[in-house]
């Protein structure tokens, strides 16, 4: 007992040191795990509020570019409406065929793209019925998936995160692959496991596939810049993103109304 007491007295700082380090290590591991409840994140009242105030101020400097981007998007949507006008007029919309995917607007209040595990914070949360595992996109393409939500803010796991895997496909041929990021360039992501028989040309557009319950089919991702042709069964495509991930402001959160139904069906298999 005396010995134990002596050891404890002599090494008490070391024991405390080890204790603090193990708490930190626990938090780090928890942070890299997508499906765990997280304690440390910027989607809380204090840090979220801080970032929102700073973003409000910073927004004034980019008002012009933002307006231009929104005007361009409006123009594109107007052209689409013209195209579908006849179809809308003849089809009566009933409550049964409400769209499966619903869009909500949000703003990025904290962005990061230089780490290997990047997260964004957006200024809508449970109060705006934003939940975990919802898609976040901008008018130019995908951004990420929400993974932690507080009442007013949500944390988004960016596509620029070594743990993110998204189902994607070629726009013109329906060949599927897995979209990942290798942590090097924030403008480039990689499409893995594309079957070798798929004909891929440089400049082809990559869009999301409809295989996940998170992303609707056909959201833009980027264009192919190089094809790694090796003698394996699948090839790796280098993709340049349409989105400038270092400059994000207005985004859309997409919720899938049929998600629970699909997941329930898949669980029974």
């Amino acid at each position: 007992m005396q010995l134990l007491n002596y050891i404890f007295k002599k090494y008490r700082f070391f024991i405390f040191f080890i204790f603090l380090e193990s708490v930190a290590a626990f938090l780090i591991i928890q942070n890299y795990n997508f499906h765990r409840e997280k304690f440390v994140s910027s989607a809380n009242f204090i840090t979220g509020g801080f970032y929102e105030k700073v973003t409000n101020l910073k927004d004034y400097f980019s008002l012009k570019q933002e307006n231009e981007a929104l005007a361009n998007e409006n123009k594109m949507l107007r052209e689409k409406i013209e195209y579908y006008k006849n179809a809308i007029d003849t089809n009566f919309v009933t409550s049964n065929n409400f769209p499966q995917f619903q869009y909500k607007t949000a703003r990025v209040i904290k962005n990061s793209y230089s780490d290997s595990h990047n997260f964004l914070t957006i200024n809508s949360g449970l109060n705006d019925s934003v939940n975990t595992e919802m898609a976040v996109v901008s008018s130019l393409g995908i951004i990420g998936i929400t993974e932690k939500v507080s009442s007013r803010y949500a944390r988004v796991q960016s596509i620029l995160n070594l743990n993110t895997k998204i189902n994607a496909k070629l726009k013109n041929s329906n060949h599927f692959g897995t979209l990942t990021w290798n942590g090097k360039n924030y403008n480039k992501v990689q499409l893995l496991d594309v079957p070798r028989q798929a004909v891929v040309n440089i400049g082809d557009t990559i869009i999301t596939g409809g295989m996940s319950t998170v992303f609707p089919e056909g959201i833009l991702i980027g264009k192919v810049t190089s094809v790694n042709q090796k003698t394996t069964t699948s090839s790796v495509l280098e993709i340049e993103l349409f989105n400038d991930m270092s400059n994000l402001n207005h985004v859309y959160v997409i919720s899938n109304k049929h998600k629970k139904e699909i997941e329930k069906l898949e669980e029974n298999e």
Partner: peptide, 13 residues
């Protein structure tokens, strides 16, 4: 610092 930069506990560690 970790709370602000979404890094779990790497800065604390």
């Amino acid at each position: 610092i970790d709370f602000f930069s979404d890094t779990g506990g790497i800065h604390a560690f």
